[in-house]
Design a protein around this nucleic acid. Sequence first.
DNA 1: CGCACCTATAGGACGATACAAGTATATGCC
DNA 2: GGCATATACTTGTATCGTCCTATAGGTGCG
Lengths: 176, 176
Amino acid sequence: MELRHAVLGLLSIRPMSGYDLGRAFAGSVAHFWYADQSQIYRVLDRLAVDGAIETERVRQEKLPDRLVHSLTDAGRSELRDWLISPLEQDRPKEPFLARLFFAAALSDDEVARLLDEREQETRKVLEQLRAIPVPTGDRAAELQAATLRSGVAHAEAELDWLDDTRRRHAQLSDRR
Amino acid sequence: MELRHAVLGLLSIRPMSGYDLGRAFAGSVAHFWYADQSQIYRVLDRLAVDGAIETERVRQEKLPDRLVHSLTDAGRSELRDWLISPLEQDRPKEPFLARLFFAAALSDDEVARLLDEREQETRKVLEQLRAIPVPTGDRAAELQAATLRSGVAHAEAELDWLDDTRRRHAQLSDRR
DNA sequence: CGCACCTATAGGACGATACAAGTATATGCC
DNA sequence: GGCATATACTTGTATCGTCCTATAGGTGCG
């Protein structure tokens, strides 16, 4: 049900086509939400059936028509209800941490490689976050900017932790 | 497919019943993996069919029999292959950040409440992490302890970010 | 006895998801 | 024309995940 809310949220900002939504999930909200293309359209179908959105076909020159979706009052109301509802229960699934937890079967080199790979990914995420234009100007923009700062803070914490973990792991290797 | 790997990982530590696995997912690995009870048994069934585990019925006094599952060579090999395979692509789904991103429709109080609730959850997570006994003694234990330290580092980063975000939000409210 | 809780395992129904494949139009290049 | 890329939308299918339900045995309490 959660992609539904993310889509409602994006449509609250402005009316969008499925393709626009796909681009948003690949860009401006990629730091906190991923969505698969086929899922996006499925969610839109359901939202339309439920009366949460309405759809207008917009013709374009030299490009295929777009189906532009906008929130209905019901959709806006549903979004608001979700925003003020209790936070979801945290149900972590962290493959990297799982790998590290069970990594005793690996050699020191293999563990070091795992940590290196994680660092590379983390630095890449940090770059991507820094490439997202920071919204400015009003309260909505500030709230959006806060999500980017969260991403940066967590990536930086991860890099610090990686340094620490590498140091500890190296000491353990030396002692063995 | 990822719960499968987590189960293989746990069984690499020692043979366990489905119930034991359930307790591990609620306890010693809760900080990085959640698993639903019914999924656990389903995964075990599949692992057995695939030859990755073998199962022994163990009788107990005053308690029901247990079905204790242990890794086969194939299962151990599968786990190892996963551990050294490339890291999974990060596909975030962060309901809290989504809520914050789309929170312009909320009042200042409602936003503040959202941040408060997030803080409470984060403090709870921190407590839970601190309640997990820190494994010590060997390399495997150190790797496991590293995952706990990651959890703590991220929770602390989150609390810092919350302070900062609250401050910024308060300033914005004052200016409005 | 019923209830609560624990140990222990299993399945149903439904929705969500990942990954793959498909359709259509347009432009540019070989 | 075929291929690549972009814009735009759609569907198939197997698996996964959630939440609910069920079974069985044991202990302790009112």
